[in-house]
Structures are given as structure tokens and as C-alpha cells.
Design a protein around this nucleic acid. Structure first.
Lengths: 151, 151
DNA sequence: ATACTTGCAAATGATTTGCCAGTGT
DNA sequence: ACACTGGCAAATCATTTGCAAGTAT
């Protein structure tokens, strides 16, 4: 289940991802292709619902269950990652072999990405003071962005 | 007027809380009494389901919807507070007029409380580096406790 | 041909809401 | 009395699961 950068070198296009899937013995179905393309083209993390809805605007229809199943498969292979902001739906994005952590606004949903190293200081402080090894990839640090904080 | 300690001085017993509610014009019904007693006696944050289930084992049955409605009422008045650990149900506890923040284990659900001042350094670092004003009362810092981290 | 996948429906879990009967004050 | 509350059923939302029909390889 551990996916390092070495395992995921070929993310130049949706096709390269699909080829990699084929190499793993997975089939390249229409649904799979659409999910991969949509996720690859997205400029921000998308919820399963957004993926299905976005696809509906195109030529094909994809069932939400299929979207979830594909996302889970892709995530287990290390191609996709997801996280939750507050109570909202999970947001999915290409993992692209690099780890990221997030800080999110609970009001407007805006998001900033952080290199894990940027949060290592905080991690160290919490492990020292409280004994917990924390990470902000699945459950980002939640707060208010500058705009929302200014009411 | 914000709810300061001065507004919430009388938390010595469930009865004192109920009296305060009466003073605010709220009625002291059986359901309300049970929720307040249960929450007051709890040594850890409880989910709405746990509150209802615990009552079922005792003399009374309380509908989950009533539990939620009461918790919301109590929270709006500043008597109760709740937070979420990962995808699990919300956990409710007496606010007792003091602010707290939490660090939780996403595997076993264990929890440590922190005085907000203990996390002010982290808050300052994040606001400076990312521009987000974060708080860990509704959505705790999530990670693995020492036991779970040791596999 | 066969195993992997999908669509559809139904189930789950958390929480909310409508509505009308019941009850503190 | 009268507004506040409670119970109960049904509705939401996000996500999962069972299955039979469809399809990539």
C-alpha cells in the first residue's frame, strides 16, 4: 500500500496513468477512463459528486457508486488521495507521488497546500507536548482564511 | 454579549444548569433533564447515540432527534460544546465556560485536551505562514496516539 | 471465456425536519 | 391557555454494498 515516488514516475498524462493501471492488471473501462481524465484535468480537489456531475455535462453518465469505487481503487494504488474539510464530502485529487498537507477555511472551503516539511515544526511540537503523531493530509488544519476571518 | 465565565458561573451540579435554563425561559422537561444529567455525569465526550443508548439502559428512553435538539439548544446557550474526530459522530461535553482544544487519535479515538494557550504558538505560526486563523475545538488535530503509532 | 466492472437499488450512519400530540409554566 | 417540547416517521447527505447484466482482455 505504500506508494513512493519511485513507484509513481509516469504522471504526464491521463493515458500514462491508464497504462499503469493496465500494467497492474486493472481494466481500462469507460468509467475508469472518465474518472482519471476528470481528476487529471481538475485544477482543484473534487468531490465524488462533482466528478459524477461534471461527467454528466459531457457525453457519458457515471453512477456515483462507480465513481467512489474507482476513487478507492486509485487511492489504494497510490494514484489518488483524498481529504475532508469539516463535515463536507471527501475531496479527491491526483496524488502524483508527492505528499501534501492542507490548511482549509471552514467557511468558504478555500485551501492551501503545504509541503509536509513546512509543518514538521508543528508536528514535532505536538509529539513532544502531547505524544501524538499528527498529519494533515486526511483531515487538514481547519480555520478561517484571511478573507473570512475579516468577516 | 459573548458568553464569558461570568455568564456561566454555576456548574456545580446538573440542577444548577437546569435552573439556569429555566432562568433563560427554557422549560425543564424530562428529556432535557436526562440529557443534562447524562452529560454532566460523563467523564468523556459522548455522542448523541451514546447519550440515547445510555438512557435506554436506564429507566428512560429518549428519541435521538430529541437528544440532538437538546444538545443544539444547550450548545447555543454556551453550556455544551461538540467536536468531530475524523468521520465519526459528533462528541458532546459540558463547555463549563472554558475553551478547550483537542488532539485526537484517528485509530482508537483517544483524546487529549489542550488549553488554547498551549496551541497559540502553532496558531501564530500558521497565521504567519499561511494566513489562516485556525482553531482545534470543532475539528481537533488528528493523528495517532503513542500506542497506535507503535502499531 | 472469465474475471473484472458497472449501473441500479437498497442499506448504512449521522443528523435534520415536519407535524401533531403532550406538557411545563 | 399557550408556547415550548417530545416522539415518530420521513427526509438528507455522504458513502457503501448486493447483485445481476455488461465488457475488457
Amino acid at each position: 500500500m505504500a506508494a513512493t515516488t519511485a513507484d509513481l514516475p509516469q504522471f504526464q498524462s491521463p493515458e500514462s496513468v491508464l497504462n499503469a493501471l493496465r500494467g497492474k492488471g486493472l481494466r481500462v473501462s469507460t468509467a475508469r477512463r472518465l474518472v482519471v481524465h476528470t481528476l487529471f484535468a481538475a485544477e482543484r480537489p473534487l468531490s465524488a459528486g462533482e466528478i459524477a456531475a461534471g461527467l454528466d455535462e459531457g457525453p457519458a453518465h457515471l453512477d456515483l457508486a462507480s465513481v467512489y469505487r474507482n476513487l478507492e481503487t486509485l487511492e489504494q494504488l497510490g494514484y489518488v488521495s483524498h481529504f475532508h474539510v469539516g463535515a463536507g464530502p471527501g475531496r479527491y485529487l491526483f496524488a502524483a507521488g508527492k505528499e501534501r498537507e492542507y490548511i482549509a477555511c471552514e467557511r468558504c472551503g478555500s485551501l492551501v497546500e503545504a509541503d509536509p516539511r513546512e509543518l514538521d515544526g508543528i508536528r514535532a511540537e505536538i509529539v513532544e507536548r502531547f505524544g501524538y503523531e499528527v498529519r494533515f493530509n486526511r483531515f487538514p488544519v481547519i480555520g478561517l482564511c484571511a478573507d473570512c476571518a475579516g468577516e
